[in-house]
Amino acid sequence: MATGNGNRKSPSNAVKIILVIVAVVFLISWISKATTGMADSTWLNIRDGFLITFAAFLTLSIFSFLYNDNPFYKFAEHLYVGVSAAYWMCLGFWSIIVGNFVPHASKTLSTFFKVPFQEYSWFYYVAFAFGVILLMRLLPKAGWIARWPLAVIIGTTAGFNLSRYLHSDFMSQVGNTFQPLFVDWQGAGHFFSNLSLAADGQLVMSAGNWIVVVGVLCGLVYFFFSKEHKGMFGAASRLGIWILMITFGASFGYTVMGRISLLVGRITFLFDDWLSIL
């Protein structure tokens, strides 16, 4: 691999030919889209044709990675990195600095950015100052000062997460697990005389609650590594794996279907929006 100034290979003739062919194909596509466009003016047709052709080019460039890493994929990848970084930066600037800080900081700036001024608050200046201090990380000798704003973020997040996770991920989940193991129990006679396999029947509902309670306990046992998984504990752990496997399979199935639907979306874009053959 060439890494320095010397020893750098120029593209081979085959690569150059491929690049020219791809450029010509997409140029023809652009011209074709521009001439068959439905917009009011020629300029709009040329512009829309270019945008759709470029999006198709980027889509195919990413798909080309299925063959191997190549210049087209790298082109799309690097362009995306730059564009998305700028996208999030601008979004952050307008929604947080302009939307959150400026209305509390300055009337002049609020007028300049056309946002309604709310009221002065020194709290926001402190936050802004902490933000600026965070940028000190770029200075080698003053980099340590950047720990202060970092500490603000970490301390706040830790405190916030402790109560939030304790409430939602622990207490709520534990509370919801303990459902009645015999749903609507009115005695054995009633149970057997109304026995049904319907999804909303007493048997199925009760069995579901049993599976949830036992599944949660066994799943937790599987993740408990302070005791050797032997005997009853090992049996519970093995049952936990079964429950976990069902869940992992379900998650996998869901993810695959999500990706396939995205793939269908991209193929529809290529064949319908770009090539117009659907």
Partner: peptide, 12 residues
């Protein structure tokens, strides 16, 4: 049912 059980164990 089973998915909920395992998800709960993981979330806890």
């Amino acid at each position: 049912v089973p998915n909920l059980a395992a998800k709960r164990a993981i979330l806890i």
